[in-house]
């Protein structure tokens, strides 16, 4: 994975990853992370959430969120016809 590809996936311009001090830092930190390889983790199950709970389920009932078109558009940088406007999508 090249630095340019990473930048693109991360929604950043390629130039962000191309700066030499950035690349050095990134490489250094990745090497730092590689320390974990020393540990034998075998078949242990990954821990995603630190405190166990299961099944947070919600009833299928419409809730009025006190939120709608006005709130969506309030912080929008650009809008038209009650919709957010962006450059042409493919």
């Amino acid at each position: 994975m090249t630095a340019k590809e990473i930048a693109k996936l991360a929604g950043l311009p390629e130039s962000e990853a191309e700066r030499s001090e950035v690349r050095e830092d990134l490489e250094k930190i990745l090497r730092y992370f590689s320390k974990l390889e020393d540990l034998d983790t075998g078949d242990i199950e990954p821990l995603v959430q630190p405190v166990y709970r299961e099944n947070a389920l919600r009833e299928d009932e419409v809730k009025d969120p006190g939120f709608g078109t006005k709130e969506v558009l309030f912080n929008a940088p650009d809008a038209k016809d009650d919709m957010i406007r962006v450059p042409r999508t493919i």
Partner: peptide, 26 residues
């Protein structure tokens, strides 16, 4: 953001992210 993207990316996910979750359980 770039580092986080890297450790989740295909080819590195197991070695970095998944590994870290396993160490987290340890």
């Amino acid at each position: 953001i770039m580092l986080g993207t890297y450790v989740l990316s295909s080819g590195f996910y197991d070695e970095y992210y998944l590994k870290a979750l396993k160490v987290r359980r340890l």
